[in-house]
Design a protein around this nucleic acid. Structure first.
Length: 340
DNA sequence: TTCACATCGCGTGGACTGTT
DNA sequence: AACAGTCCACGCGATGTGAA
């Protein structure tokens, strides 16, 4: 960008330069950043905004105060969580000092207006939906856990997987159990298949006889009809098999014609009631299609593995998962993922 | 004696002001 | 428009206090 001397520096120009720089830096620019990295001069800002802070506020950002670089809440919790991970327990005040952690305890107390002994539960509250912390949540005393209601299911995704899960899926397991937000759960299930490398077609709700999504692996000649079911407890197929049979019948011919000679039907939910094979047999008998049930946790594990070792999980290998009829246990998934 | 927590004086450095 | 100066919130870390 170049502002010639005769160009009028308008308010709008300043604002657009501000947002550009903010995007570039990935954070709110300080006045120093701003004057250094754009061609806007201080007096331009002053003529339009009086103070730099006024510009910052008008852009919806936080007015910076004096003094040292602020720690964000996130840094506070990140540092706190890191020490828990290191010493495998919530730190005492003495341990915090021993490991020379920052910010100081007094800063935690001041900032959150809580006692040091209350920080663990505050941290838990912050970390419970974030996959990067799932591995240390069990290290926080269980008495505290009850207050915050961590979904138990979250604990079952170990760090070795959770570290590879992208932030947008941080609430995935929670969504899998919240029936009110079923659409969001469906969307994210489709997103996972997209991340796995499938070409995904979203249907979502209110589109008639459609599953929630169709994942196509055209070059390997197969496709998966996906139905996502957010359930608080367990999911039972029950009488829904009629509906599923319709889904399949609606799509199978088109898919076959487009070169997807094999079609699978997959149901994703938080948990399944095991004994429901009558419905599955009905589906198989009427459509010739294999139905597979997979938990949200297992699905995340597959994704984590795919992100960690993309070459080890090409789409034709992923196909093997869906050969199983019925419920795939977590153990089977683990075994599958460890195999070369 | 140990631990949790509070208190206080200090240095820092960026927003803001005044001067040239 | 550039420079120099002021101001003060923030976090640091030493030290104090009181409970177990």
């Amino acid at each position: 960008m170049n502002i010639a001397k005769d160009t009028t520096v308008t308010k709008e120009l300043i604002k657009s330069e501000y947002s550009k720089l903010k995007e570039h830096l990935g954070r709110q620019p300080s006045s120093k950043d701003f004057y250094k990295q754009t061609n806007i001069k201080e007096h331009h800002v002053i003529t339009h905004f009086l103070f730099y802070s006024n510009l910052v506020e008008e852009m919806g950002d936080i007015r910076k105060s004096f003094g040292q670089e602020d720690y964000g809440d996130e840094e506070y919790w990140e540092n706190y969580g890191n020490l828990i991970r290191k010493i495998r327990k919530t730190p005492t005040a003495a341990e915090w000092r021993f490991y020379k952690c920052k910010p100081l305890i007094s800063s935690y107390i001041k900032r959150f207006e809580k006692k040091w002994s209350e920080i663990p539960s505050l941290f838990l509250n912050y970390a419970k939906d974030k996959p990067e912390w799932l591995d240390i949540i069990p290290l926080i005393p269980s008495a505290l856990k009850e207050n915050v209601q961590v979904p138990i299911i979250n604990n079952s995704l170990e760090f070795k997987y959770s570290q590879f899960i992208p932030p947008i899926l941080s609430d995935f397991l929670t969504l899998s159990t919240s029936e009110e937000k079923s659409t969001e759960f469906e969307r994210k299930v489709n997103l996972i298949f997209q991340m796995l490398g499938f070409e995904v077609h979203n249907y979502g709700q209110g589109t008639g006889r459609n599953p929630d999504g169709i994942a196509k692996a055209t070059q390997f000649g197969y496709a998966i009809l996906i139905d996502a079911k957010a359930r608080k407890e367990t999911y039972q197929i029950g009488t829904e098999d009629r509906k599923f049979i319709e889904y399949i019948k609606t799509h199978i011919n088109t898919l076959n014609r487009a070169g997807h000679s094999i079609v699978y039907f997959l149901i994703v939910s938080s948990n399944f009631k095991s004994a429901s094979d009558i419905s599955l047999k009905n589906i198989l008998r009427e459509t010739g299609i294999n139905t597979t049930l997979i938990t949200a946790v297992s699905l995340l594990k597959i994704l984590a593995r795919k992100i960690e070792q993309p070459n080890n999980l090409p789409l034709d290998r992923i196909k093997d998962i869906f050969i199983t009829q019925g419920m795939i246990t977590d153990k089977q998934i683990e075994k599958f993922l460890l195999a070369k």
